[in-house]
């Protein structure tokens, strides 16, 4: 259909949703800040799926990989935890400090069970990418219909 080609509101919806998420994250962070160190919804995550796998991506610039741990538990729980350490020069003064540092931990519940042995994680230019192949039982199966 011609009318389906352009939807002026789709962009708006995307932005609204993003704003909503940002607000949630902000409030999470604030309430966490009152009780203990920064362990809100960090890192922010983008995730998507196809028939084969669930893909997950998180921005963790400057992270030392030896400080990052990834677990899959119970087939569908993914835990990311680690620590981002500041690199502070020996002497001098700060003019601006906007980048956050410290420990983080985040648990994500995946929509389907995954094959924990085949999880592949890569870290490139400060972006962590995780591919979690769906377990065989969760994959869509094409059923051949036999004709008589």
């Amino acid at each position: 259909m011609l009318t389906a080609r352009w939807d002026p509101f789709s962009d708006l919806w995307g932005r609204m949703e993003q704003l909503h998420n940002e607000m949630n994250r902000l409030f999470n962070r604030m309430s966490d800040g009152l009780t203990r160190s920064w362990v809100g919804a960090f890192p922010a995550v983008n995730a998507w799926e196809d028939d084969e796998a669930v893909y997950l991506e998180a921005e963790l610039p400057g992270l030392d990989l030896s400080k990052l741990e990834i677990f899959v538990t119970g087939g569908n729980q993914l835990t990311l935890q680690g620590e981002r350490q500041p690199n502070v020069p020996a002497d001098g003064v700060w003019h601006r400090q906007e980048r956050g540092f410290g420990k983080f931990a985040r648990v994500l519940t995946l929509p389907v069970p995954v094959d924990a042995d085949k999880v592949d994680a890569r870290f490139e230019h400060g972006v962590l990418r995780i591919k979690l192949p769906k377990s065989e039982t969760a994959k869509p199966r094409r059923i051949a219909v036999k004709a008589d």
Partner: peptide, 22 residues
């Protein structure tokens, strides 16, 4: 990008988080 700026006696040092940039 989020940025830290630090000044020493010899230079200004700027750190910027730019994940995904080669």
């Amino acid at each position: 990008p989020r940025v830290d700026i630090y000044e020493t006696t010899d230079e200004l040092l700027l750190f910027a988080d730019m994940p995904g940039v080669a």
